[in-house]
Every structure is written in structure tokens, then in C-alpha cells.
């Protein structure tokens, strides 16, 4: 029996999505990248953290990091916690960091894009599938990928030099 259970468990682990946790360094890269979004004035940026039950602790940690405003280059990030089920209330945010199963969820992306919110995740699969505008990796070196189709759908555009220095798909 044990010989049957182990492969089943292993198969379950392999098929379950594996989400890289979003670090404070990732958050700083996201914040600096927000500084190159067009059509946004001022230095304050509201960042919605969209989470599921499995990523609530991670969301709380990120919100804590932004408590009182996290300075990232020329902008200051302020967090707004948004449970995945409340993705329809993203309006007013400049960006949405998608955690757990919110990253890659078509409903969350649809809600964010219709509100003109730039979606970002550290899960590169999200941006590759077009369910996020931006994918960010801060280590070992900074990597920023933008899905142009998702950006157009979200009415999001970036400064020209920034667009030339990142990967676009």
C-alpha cells in the first residue's frame, strides 16, 4: 500500500502549483518598476496584495513591510490587503501583487485589468500565460518580464527606456 501512496503523493506534489514567496527585495523592485508606469503622477503608489487562504501569512508579511510606506526609488508604496474573493474591489490601486493561487487566476486578472490595475507576480508562469502584466525576479539578478497583451488589456504602459531594458513577450 505504501508503494502506491508514495507515487500518488509525489504526483500530487508535482501537479500542485509551486509559488515562490514574494520577498521584500522583490517588492522593492516592483516599486521601482512602478515608477516607470506612464500616466501616474505623484510619488504615492497603492499596492493591492491579492491573496488566497494559503498565502495569507505572506500577504500579511508584505503588508507589514509596507506599513507606514515603503520607499522604493522615487515612489512610496502603501499596501491594501485584498482577499482573492474580493478582487472586484481593486479599483483605485496602482498595482496588484498576486500571491498564491491568485497568481494566474483568470478571474483576478480580468477584474484587475478592467479596473486598469497593473498586475504583477514573482511567478513567471503568470506573466507567460498572460494572466499578469508583469513578472518580477530579484535574485540572483533582476529580471522583469512584461506581457504586452496583458498590458494593453489593462491599459497599462511603461516609459520607453524602461520598455527597452526589460523582456517583453
Amino acid at each position: 500500500m505504501r508503494f502506491l501512496i508514495l507515487p500518488v503523493l509525489a504526483g500530487a506534489l508535482i501537479s500542485s502549483p509551486v509559488f515562490a514567496e514574494t520577498s521584500q527585495r522583490d517588492l522593492e523592485v516592483i516599486g521601482r518598476a512602478l515608477g516607470f508606469m506612464e500616466g501616474v503622477s505623484g510619488s504615492d503608489r497603492t499596492v493591492a496584495i491579492v491573496y488566497d487562504a494559503g498565502s495569507e501569512a505572506e500577504a500579511q508579511a508584505l503588508a507589514g513591510a509596507m506599513s507606514g510606506g515603503l520607499s522604493a526609488g522615487r515612489v512610496t508604496l502603501n499596501a491594501r490587503l485584498v482577499p482573492m474573493a474580493d478582487a472586484g474591489s481593486l479599483s483605485g490601486a496602482h498595482a496588484a501583487v498576486l500571491l498564491g493561487s491568485a497568481s494566474g487566476d483568470a478571474g483576478v486578472f480580468s477584474a484587475a485589468s478592467s479596473a486598469g490595475v497593473m498586475t504583477v507576480s514573482t511567478d513567471m508562469g503568470c506573466v507567460e500565460s498572460g494572466q499578469c502584466v508583469m513578472g518580477v525576479q530579484s535574485a540572483p539578478s533582476v529580471r522583469i518580464v512584461v506581457n504586452r497583451g496583458a498590458a494593453d488589456a489593462s491599459s497599462v504602459s511603461f516609459a520607453a527606456a524602461f520598455a527597452m531594458m526589460i523582456e517583453e513577450i
Partner: peptide, 21 residues
């Protein structure tokens, strides 16, 4: 280059360098 929010679109070497490390 181009820093949105700056008065014009000029390359902000410092901001870009900090972003990309």
C-alpha cells in the same frame, strides 16, 4: 531615458541603476 513623473522623459541613470542593480 524616461522616468515617468519626472518633468520630462530623461534617462534617470540613478533610478535605473538602482532598479536593475
Amino acid at each position: 531615458a524616461w522616468q515617468a513623473g519626472a518633468s520630462a522623459q530623461t534617462l534617470d541613470y540613478t533610478a535605473m541603476s538602482e532598479l536593475f542593480g
